[in-house]
């Protein structure tokens, strides 16, 4: 509907420092590189993901914050018996942290610039992800309580 004939009229800033923060239930950490993550994208089919079930650490890369596939992938992966560290990576919103945790992720890796932009308080609000949870109440959840 609202197509403009002007080229390059968007003002999004695409350059960004690569430095990232890890968000967990205990707050913010900088990357410690203690474990090597196996990287997959949200395009991966569940069968291919399940082959990684005995790995120590897997990182699922979200294309963007509207890419909801990662949540279902995490749930299925935990269902397959994956016991290692499951990390999400991508420009997600603070409001999605609880969805990550409830789906079976342990933590989120995200550019520190994005963390700052949303304000740290917004991120910390998500740490209370286990309360007010309908699905847990209905038994349709595999979530490990902290």
């Amino acid at each position: 509907m609202r197509e403009n004939n002007c080229a390059n009229s968007t003002t999004k800033n695409k350059t960004r420092r690569e430095s990232c923060l890890i968000i967990t239930d205990s707050g913010f950490e900088t990357e410690d590189y203690r474990v090597d993550f196996i990287d997959v994208t949200t395009d991966i089919v569940p069968q291919a993901l399940s082959k990684l079930r005995d790995s120590r650490a897997v990182r699922i890369n979200f294309a963007n914050f509207k890419d909801g596939r990662g949540f279902t992938l995490a749930r299925l992966f935990r269902l397959e018996g994956f016991k290692g560290v499951l990390r999400a990576k991508g420009d997600l919103l603070p409001d999605q942290y609880s969805m990550l945790r409830r789906s079976g992720f342990d933590e989120l890796e995200i550019a520190d610039m994005v963390v700052e932009r949303h304000s740290k308080a917004a991120w910390l609000a998500g740490i209370n992800w286990h309360s007010h949870h309908y699905q847990k109440r209905l038994g349709s959840s595999l979530i490990r309580e902290p």
């Binding site: 403009n4 004939n5 002007c6 080229a7 009229s9 003002t11 999004k12």
Partner: peptide, 13 residues
Amino acid sequence: SCRWLLEGEVQQS
């Protein structure tokens, strides 16, 4: 018009 639209977009962001 492109310049002014850009102005609007800058203001949005």
